[in-house]
């Protein structure tokens, strides 16, 4: 265990978030079983009022998890000096087996909480709360993820001992790698990665345009958003980061967040994350539009989410393009 302000803050945040959601589970279960709007009893009224609390808490949890995600990566990078051989966040995360699972779980929590908030937002537009059971069932499913994320993070931080020899990004991401996935991601050919990226961005923008124009196919947009997220991340690791570092064998998704590179990573990740979470939300809102009481409101929500999503992906694409354009590294010879 390392006593560090950022670590204490992270443990505090995820512990409290898990506790809050866990504490809402019995209530969620009551809603799933007992919800009945036609009932004018005081118990039903109390239940309705309690939903405001849960929604507010979830908003706070979501905000905290978002902040925690940034803080976690930032801190992992900063702690690299404490571990022999660790040169950036990758090294710190490889110090014990819980590092990367923590990161993945944090990502999952962020996206799931985002989806839940969209669900809540849409449901609140329908006069009969048509999705309330779905929503609270989803909350019950969300709880173990949050608890898991807190526990895994705890295990990770507890297991940290300064000065453990770890692999760093240069050995992890270029040859002789430790993780298979990261390696195969890093060894993705640049041309393939960029064309996949261009293709998926085009697809996701097109499907977003369909949602915007005809207010349908939200599910397709959500699916393509997930694909674009995965491909976007792979492209960052395999190719875009290389352009940023201007070193052909340096593939690291974290170093681009560093000050040395002008924190440029945030300009890539923030739009990508916004695009993805809004794309998922657009899918959820589109699906909710099938309920009669939401048939007018949900497509509107889907539309504005799709607009945000399209904006996010477009910005991501532009930033990526600009990074490639300004780089001194040439990976492709232009034949005149």
């Amino acid at each position: 265990m390392l006593f560090q302000p950022a670590i204490i803050a992270l443990m505090l945040a995820s512990g409290l978030a898990a506790l809050l959601v866990l504490a809402s589970v019995p209530f969620a279960w009551t809603v799933v079983r007992r919800w009945n709007l036609a009932d004018g009893s005081e118990a039903q009224l109390r239940m309705e009022r309690r939903t405001y609390l849960v929604a507010t808490l979830l908003k706070i949890v979501m905000a905290a998890e978002l902040a925690a995600l940034v803080l976690f990566v930032f801190n992992a990078d900063r702690m690299a000096t404490l571990f022999t051989g660790a040169m950036c966040a990758v090294g710190t995360l490889k110090v014990d087996p819980w590092g990367f699972p923590t990161l993945y779980l944090k990502l999952a929590v962020f996206f799931l909480a985002g989806c839940w908030l969209v669900l809540d937002h849409v449901d609140n537009r329908g006069w009969d709360y048509p999705l309330i059971r779905v929503k609270y069932a989803a909350l019950i499913l969300l709880a173990p993820v949050l608890v898991g994320s807190a526990v895994v993070q705890g295990a990770y931080f507890m297991g940290l001992r300064a000065d453990v020899i770890t692999s760093c990004c240069s050995t992890l991401f270029s040859g002789g790698g430790v993780t298979v996935t990261s390696n195969s991601v890093a060894s993705l050919p640049h041309g393939l990665a960029l064309s996949l990226l261009a293709g998926s961005l085009a697809a996701v923008l097109a499907s977003g345009a369909v949602v915007l124009r005809w207010r349908r196919c939200g599910w397709l947009h959500a699916l393509l958003s997930v694909a674009a997220f995965v491909i976007g991340m792979s492209a960052i690791i395999s190719t875009i980061s290389v352009y940023v570092y201007e070193m052909p064998h340096h593939h690291c998704p974290f170093c681009i967040l560093k000050r040395e590179y002008g924190h440029i990573g945030y300009a890539l990740y923030v739009p990508l994350f916004v695009g993805t979470v809004c794309g998922l939300g657009a899918g959820i809102a589109g699906w909710a539009g099938r309920r009669p009481s939401l048939s007018t409101m949900a497509p509107l929500v889907a539309r504005s989410l799709a607009a945000w999503s399209v904006g996010g992906y477009a910005l991501f694409g532009l930033v990526a393009l600009w990074l490639i354009e300004r780089s001194h590294l040439i990976l492709f010879e232009v034949v005149p």
């Binding site: 505090l12 902040a67 930032f74 801190n75």
Partner: peptide, 14 residues
């Protein structure tokens, strides 16, 4: 350090 300011914000506002 930006990280510190961010941590501090988290620590006090959350």
């Amino acid at each position: 350090d930006e990280l510190q300011v961010a941590t501090l914000f988290f620590f006090t506002v959350f």
